[in-house]
Every structure is written in structure tokens, then in C-alpha cells.
């Protein structure tokens, strides 16, 4: 379950994120996820990581995704290792290039680094830090060491075949996102990943994907409207008419039983984990989905 970090009313009441994290930790969810934006009202990713580690005891914590080019890689490695320590080794790190030029500008990051090659380079630097190697002359080791040997597993944030081939050499899995819920397309992507990882002589990749969702039961029967409203807010860097055109076919809008049914079909594709991305901040959504999954 993804935390509602991109919701406009996130901060209107205290404790929204805590309620979501604790409800997700109660199960049956396998992970709590959150992504990164800069020029937006969402919480800063690595700061939130510490809080989520403190609020939860059981679930894995997944960044979906963090953009390493927006950070110093040594500091990012230290922050993530700290998150792994604070959570007792429950961290999984999704890394992505990030599609928003404005987020690069906001923190003075070099736009020339907005490429897959840079992502792999930064992943390598982080792993060196996690192994306890020195990052330069006259610099002591930068700890703390992660709890997980060699550091948290690294997933590549992806929407297409090109990023997958680039990442097969270093990533442990995929942190995918499905806009239109095309099972066929997700299946193809997974096949490409299995093949690319095999060609690199690496263990089979962990296959995860995510999609936006809204429930009829918690939206007064206006689930599609809820998705649309969320997209208009979240996709702030895209032209409004483009977002309007995407909205009718993006994400899941339906009843809880329909959602469970859809999740089963993802399971049949060999998906290791589906991360649901909320389009509203009402924690009741977590309870409804949890109940249905328990029942199934």
C-alpha cells in the first residue's frame, strides 16, 4: 500500500500518514511505499522514511521511487542505511530517473544526469558505501552499515523495456507502474525483464508493479472522478487537457471485489507484489482493501 503523500489535503489533519502506515502494518499488506517529488507539498522522502520505520514493525518499506540524481549519492546511501537500521532491515529501495525537469531545477541538480547510465553509476556508489568502502582520500568510512548484508535490495523504477535492459546489470527487481492496467503490457515487460536478467547471469528479478486506485465504496460511487481529481493535482507539470484525456483510462476505479479480482489477474502473471497508489487520503480505503484481502 502506498501512502497518500501526494494528496492536497494530506496536512489538513494531523496524523494522516501515521494512520495509513499503522493500518498498513496491521496487514495483510506486504509493504508500505512512497515516492519522491521536490516542487510539491509531499513530505521529503528520506525524512518520511525515518518516521515510517518508527510507525511500523512488520511491513517492508519501499521507496517508489527515489531519484538519486536529486541527492548526493554518498549522503543518500547514508540516509537509506539509516532507514534500514531504524526499520530493523525492512527497506527496499526503488530508484528512478524521474520525469520532472522542475524537480531537478528545484534542488540545483544537473539535468545532464537525467539518464539511466547515471542511475546505475549512483547505485554502484551507494553499494560501495554500504559495503564500508571509503569514498575518497582523507575521508573515513561513511556509515552506519545497513542491517541487510550488502544493503537494501534495489529495484529500478520503470515504465518500459529500455530502462529494464539498462538496469539488468545492477537492479534486483522492477518497481513498475501500470497506467492503463493492461495485463498484456505488464506481462510483456516482465518477460523482457526475466530474459534481460538471465542474459546478465543474474538471479531472477523481483517483479513488482503499481497502479492508482479509487473505490466506489469510499468515494460515494464516484471512484473515476476521484482518480481524475488526483491526476489533475499530481500531474501538475503536464498540460491539463492531456491529463483529462488520460483520466478515463488511467488506474483502477471500481468496487472492492473488482479490485480483488484484478489483483488475482496480476498474481497470475507472476507478479511478486502489486503496490496500490491511493488517489484520496481517507484511511478507510486501507481498511476496506485489507478486509477484502483477508476474506479472500
Amino acid at each position: 500500500m502506498t501512502l497518500p503523500v501526494m494528496e492536497p489535503d494530506l496536512w489538513a489533519a494531523d496524523g494522516v500518514l501515521e494512520a495509513w502506515a499503522r493500518a498498513s502494518d496491521e496487514g495483510p499488506f506486504s509493504s508500505v511505499c512512497f515516492g519522491e517529488r521536490m516542487a510539491f507539498d509531499n513530505p521529503e522522502t528520506l525524512t518520511l522514511l525515518g518516521a515510517v520505520a518508527a510507525w511500523t514493525r512488520r511491513v517492508r518499506i519501499v521507496t517508489t521511487v527515489v531519484v538519486p540524481q536529486l541527492h548526493d549519492p554518498v549522503l543518500l546511501a547514508k540516509s537509506l542505511a539509516t532507514g534500514d537500521r531504524l526499520s530493523g532491515g525492512r527497506l527496499t529501495v526503488g530508484l528512478g530517473v524521474g520525469g520532472r525537469v522542475e524537480d531537478y531545477r528545484a534542488v540545483g541538480a544537473d539535468l545532464g544526469t537525467q539518464r539511466m547510465r547515471e542511475l546505475g553509476d549512483r547505485a554502484a556508489v551507494m553499494r560501495r558505501v554500504w559495503r564500508g568502502e571509503r569514498v575518497g582520500e582523507d575521508v573515513g568510512r561513511v556509515g552506519p552499515p545497513p542491517v541487510q548484508e550488502g544493503g537494501p535490495e534495489l529495484f529500478v523504477g520503470t515504465t518500459g523495456p529500455r530502462t529494464i535492459r539498462y538496469a539488468a546489470g545492477w537492479a534486483d527487481g522492477l518497481a513498475g507502474v501500470s497506467l492503463d492496467l493492461s495485463l498484456e503490457r505488464v506481462g510483456e515487460l516482465f518477460d523482457i525483464a526475466r530474459k534481460a536478467w538471465a542474459e546478465e547471469g543474474r538471479p531472477a528479478p523481483r517483479l513488482t508493479t503499481s497502479f492508482w486506485f479509487a473505490l466506489e465504496e469510499t468515494s460515494g460511487g464516484r471512484a473515476r472522478e476521484q482518480v481524475h481529481r488526483h491526476l489533475r493535482h499530481y500531474l501538475s507539470w503536464l498540460p491539463g487537457d492531456l491529463v483529462d484525456a488520460m483520466a478515463p483510462t488511467t488506474g483502477f476505479a471500481g468496487t472492492v471485489p473488482e479490485l480483488v479480482d484484478l489483483l488475482r489477474r496480476f498474481e497470475d502473471l507472476g507478479t511478486d507484489e502489486v503496490q496500490l497508489i491511493p488517489t484520496g487520503s481517507d484511511v478507510e480505503q486501507v481498511h476496506r482493501v485489507a478486509e477484502a484481502l483477508h476474506g479472500g
Binding site: 525515518g50 518508527a54 540516509s79 542505511a81 539509516t82 537500521r85 573515513g140
Partner: peptide, 12 residues
């Protein structure tokens, strides 16, 4: 050294 990262620790 082994100090936690300040940002992540502040969140916790």
C-alpha cells in the same frame, strides 16, 4: 562514521 543521517533520524 556511524552517526545516523540527521533527516531520517529526525523523522523517526
Amino acid at each position: 562514521g556511524d552517526s545516523p543521517d540527521i533527516g531520517a533520524l529526525l523523522g523517526a
